[in-house]
Design a protein around this nucleic acid. Structure first.
Length: 627
RNA sequence: GCCAACGUAGCGCAGUCGGUAGCGCAACUGAUUCGUAAUCAGUAGGUCACGAGUUCGAGUCUCGUCGUUGGCUCCA
């Protein structure tokens, strides 16, 4: 904690130095300075400047900051009245707004750095800039940001700076950034031929043969686990008429994120020409053109009755599936798992490799339960999450979001459900062993989010467990209770991977492309030394395939070293070399991934057993000796 | 959507002042038949993202569009 305070004091102080440097460089009359808080790896400061800052300016700004530090000026604090403050920051609109927004009785403190720079600030700061001389900092980037995050307000230039107490720590941090860049799933995905994108389908991955093998391995594993827990899988339409979205509420709340298939409101009886169609929405650039349409052309219209939309979520179709028949309390819980393709339209600039896409699959499920079953069902879901996350060797953290102000439904149901969830979380993680976000739940029910932590310590929200009191209501779902009355089930939405696409992105970075055996696109690379060994190699390949082991063989006449190199670049866990010796003795010689170590002359049956064991146990570690 | 940067062969990159489109790897062909991370020789591969503009001439300068990346915002 001490270190945290220290970090906050000097990062914040450095932020003032940055502001002072920028003002000295551009002139106070040309600069509007906003706020400069500290963040995880440094700080930023927002400005309005007469021109845009580019990377070429970074040195200049950093040098100016160092020059200012060398002046060894004092940071002096002064308490001022609101009037005094307003006078002092006359012409600085952001500071003025901040002052006016503070409660009337709040004490205003201002900090001087030297004589000529003053900033509104709660402090505390270092006493003298000298104390910052040993700090290490480096401008990270400049990007756009809005004043108070509101896109309708001023657009500011945000200067991000890395800042650490010592050069070594900055160096370590830059090293970590470098490491993260090397693990970039977009880079590794291309290197390992896992997936690709094309501009005709922004944010919609093409899964290449190798990537798809991994995808299937993840699906297979998910299905295995869920089947054990009594889940039954369904598949449903990807595109539904808007009637469905009107019932579910998506048409009202989510329509701008949906890919639309407009309906047809008619056909042209004769060729027609539509004059004055603008080719561009931007003023001054758009030129009106006549568009020709041939007789028989359909006239598409989003508002017609046969308009359809691609599903952004599986829930409505799961509700329809439940509704097909009447249900008895004896059937519940009913667990419909689903891996269908979903589409969500994102604003341009929102996409990011596999982390944020417009087309994806979830390891989704909708479970229909009686209220009395919530507790046990959630406990079971958490058990599934435990099992799956531990298989990937990652830890996770739960966040509990409770009833928001604009909740819908019966407050008593909410209270009972939240109490049940809290009890499970307390039992599982201990009180305080998870975070509570009061009022952060969805309007239709409380939720638990599961954040996993990857090998670099970065956190990702993957799993989510949400109670839903709204959809059963919208779709009029019922079950017949023991006493013969019709009751409404509660729906639990849940996913463990979250989106398969994003999860794969995360594990690519977590494992740096060096996947556990069971997950590797190909698990064994087969290298016959000479063409005369192809026959034996083929026999081995067939045997592996029969045993559910994914193997690839290179039967070409290339040099064996080249074959090994190719498989090593693909990071195949085992590369087996087959020559005279192996063929005559029915053995394989294994090259272990990640080392130059080999295990010679392993009996074929032992090798198959090793591979099968890792597939069955979903082992994290590669077996590196014959047992 | 907003701010900024980027887009040259499958991949990684070079291309100066506006003057004939280049390199490495990969691919293909031939030779080599090899015991653990690059055998040798040769060949082919381009709408320089797309569209306008300036110019005698544009990969290079200007504008626009699309895509990607880093942020903002939102989210799984």
């Amino acid at each position: 904690m001490e270190r945290e305070e220290f970090l906050s004091v000097y990062r914040h102080s450095l932020a003032h130095i940055l502001a002072k440097a920028v003002i000295e460089l551009f002139g106070i009359e040309n600069v509007q300075y906003a706020i400069g808080p500290q963040i995880a790896d440094g700080f930023y400061y927002d400005f309005i400047l007469p021109r845009t800052i580019s990377t070429e300016d970074f040195d200049m700004i950093e040098n100016k900051m160092r020059e200012i530090l060398k002046r060894k000026e004092d940071f002096t604090v002064r308490e001022v009245s609101r009037e005094e403050a307003l006078e002092l920051f006359r012409g600085q609109k952001f500071k003025t707004e901040l002052i006016e927004d503070l409660p009337a009785d709040e004490k205003l403190t201002i900090y001087y750095t030297g004589e000529d720079f003053v900033d509104l600030c709660r402090g505390p700061h270092v006493e003298n800039a000298q104390q910052l001389l040993s700090c290490a900092f480096k401008i990270k980037s400049v990007s756009g940001a809005y004043w108070r995050g509101d896109e309708k307000r001023d657009s500011l230039q945000r200067i991000y700076v890395y800042a650490f107490p010592s050069k070594d720590e900055l160096k370590a941090h830059l090293h970590m950034i470098q490491e993260a860049m090397e693990r970039d799933h977009k880079k590794i995905g291309a290197q390992l031929d896992l997936f690709m994108f094309d501009e005709t389908a922004p944010g919609m991955p093409y899964w290449l043969p190798r990537g798809w093998k991994m995808y299937q391995a993840l699906l297979k594993y998910s299905r295995e686990v869920q089947e054990r827990h009594g889940y039954t899988e369904i598949a449903a339409p990807l595109v539904n008429n808007k009637k469905l979205w009107l019932i579910s509420g998506h048409w009202a709340h989510y329509v701008n994120n949906m890919f639309m298939v407009p309906g047809i409101s008619g056909w042209l009886a004769a060729d027609a020409e539509i004059p004055g169609v603008l080719d561009n929405l931007q003023e001054g650039i758009a030129e009106p053109q006549a568009v020709k349409m041939l007789a028989g052309s359909a006239l598409y219209n989003r508002e017609t009755e046969d308009t359809m939309a691609a599903k952004p979520m599986n829930c409505p179709n799961a509700m329809m599936t439940y509704k097909r028949t009447i249900h008895s309390y004896k059937e519940l819980p009913i667990r419909y798992s689903e891996y269908d393709v979903l589409h969500r339209k994102e604003k341009s600039g929102q996409m990011n490799g596999l982390f944020r896409v417009q087309e994806f699959r979830q390891d989704d499920d909708h479970t229909f339960v009686m209220e009395s079953q919530i507790e046990q069902e959630i406990a079971d879901i958490i058990a599934i999450a435990d099992e799956i996350y531990s298989t990937f060797g990652v830890t996770y953290r739960a966040e509990f979001s409770t009833r928001p102000d604009d909740f819908m439904g019966d407050i008593e149901v909410w209270n009972r459900a939240e109490a049940a969830l809290k009890k499970i979380l307390d039992d599982k993680y201990g009180e305080g062993g998870y975070e509570i976000n009061e009022g952060d739940g969805a309007f239709y029910g409380p939720k638990i989010d599961l954040q996993i932590k990857d090998a670099l310590g970065r956190e990702w929200q993957c799993g989510t467990i949400q109670l839903d009191f709204q959809l059963p209501h919208n779709f009029g779902l019922t079950y017949q209770a023991q006493d013969g009355t019709l009751e409404m089930p509660v729906v639990i939405h849940r996913a463990i991977y979250g989106s398969l696409e994003r999860f794969i992105g995360i594990i690519i970075e977590n494992f740096k492309g060096i996947f556990p055996f069971w997950l590797s696109p190909y698990q064994v690379g087969i290298v016959p030394i000479r063409e005369e060994h192809n026959e034996y190699a083929k026999k081995v390949a067939d045997l592996l395939q029969e045993n559910g082991i994914r193997a690839e063989a290179d039967y070409s006449d290339r040099n064996m070293k080249e074959k090994i190199k190719t498989f090593k670049n693909y990071k195949d866990p085992y590369i087996i070399v087959l020559g005279d010796r192996e063929a005559s003795e029915e053995t394989v010689s294994i090259n272990l991934r990640g080392s130059n170590r080999q295990i010679q002359n392993v009996p074929l049956s032992d090798f198959v057993r090793m591979c099968r064991k890792m597939n069955e146990e979903h082992s994290l570690e590669l077996i590196d000796s014959v047992e």
